[in-house]
């Protein structure tokens, strides 16, 4: 069997294993979905009037704020889901089964690739779930063409892949599930420091560059542009660069960590 077909076959076996885990134990995935869903409802129904007044120059309009906050929350959903990835990778590494995999004549990276693919699929499912809630409470894309919808979907997948590789690396260096969950905290904290909830120009000047150039803000602005027709500008390229950079970084980091002699 060629290296490639071995990789494909073993990785899909490992993917099946991960999906089985996710299906059998959905509680963690659902717990992680709680944060973005609660924030969505909180910001729309509790803070919505105030937030939209600040946004639209005085007149409270909840629908305006729904439109504003949903793109950020979709990306936050991805961050939240990948915390689960870090935890499940860390847990997996403490189990004897991975030691067994390492002594088998299988594609070396398949364990990790299985986790990555499983995580991306879970991210997409989570985004669809949160997106459906958003639509149910009134979110509508104003002017997106089919091409823009595709681009938006591509961005979500790419962003999922980027955060997933990062989370896999975090999971691999964590000694246990608790450690992984702590290490992966930035994945859900970063969106709070982005343009997800309030525009950058509403932030204090010294803080603005931090919020502007972290990975979430360009991705949020790009998604907003694609779905709502706001201006994307250089954020598109920035988002793409962040995603690709994180994929490469996370991949190299994970590979190096996984290939070390086990503890």
């Amino acid at each position: 069997m060629s290296t490639l077909s071995l990789a494909v076959r073993d990785s899909s076996t490992m993917l099946r294993r991960n999906l089985l885990h996710a299906r059998r134990y959905p509680s963690m995935t659902l717990n992680l979905l709680l944060t973005p869903v609660m924030l969505l409802l909180l910001f729309v129904y509790v803070f919505g009037d105030t937030m939209s007044a600040g946004l639209g120059g005085g007149t409270p309009d909840r629908d305006v704020y729904i439109a504003y906050v949903v793109p950020g929350l979709l990306l936050m959903t991805i961050g939240s889901t990948t915390i689960g990835t870090a935890v499940s990778v860390a847990t997996d590494m403490t189990e004897g089964i991975v030691a067994r995999f390492r002594t088998m004549a299988i594609h070396r990276g398949s364990v990790i690739i299985g986790h990555v693919l499983g995580s991306v699929l879970q991210c997409i499912a989570s985004v669809v779930f949160v997106g459906a809630i958003a639509v149910a409470i009134g979110f509508r894309s104003t002017d997106a063409t089919v091409l823009e919808w595709l681009a938006a979907f591509g961005l979500l997948v790419l962003f999922s892949l980027a955060l997933t590789w990062l989370a896999v690396g975090m999971g691999l260096v964590s000694p246990n599930a608790e450690g992984a969950s702590n290490n992966a905290m930035p994945l859900i904290l970063l969106p709070l420091l982005s343009s997800a909830f309030v525009p950058l120009d509403a932030m204090p000047g010294w803080f603005r560059p931090v919020a502007e150039y972290q990975p979430f803000t360009p991705a949020i602005e790009t998604l907003r542009g694609l779905l709502l027709g706001t201006e994307i500008g250089h954020d598109g390229w920035l988002a793409l660069a962040w995603c690709l950079g994180l994929v490469v970084l996370g991949y190299l980091w994970s590979r190096a960590t996984f290939n070390r002699d086990p503890r």
Binding site: R17, E95, A105
Partner: peptide, 18 residues
């Protein structure tokens, strides 16, 4: 080597979740 061997480690190498 891996193709020829089978290993049962000291700590159980089963997937407990499935």
């Amino acid at each position: 080597v891996r193709a020829a061997i089978g290993v049962t480690g000291q700590f159980s190498a089963v997937d407990n979740l499935i």
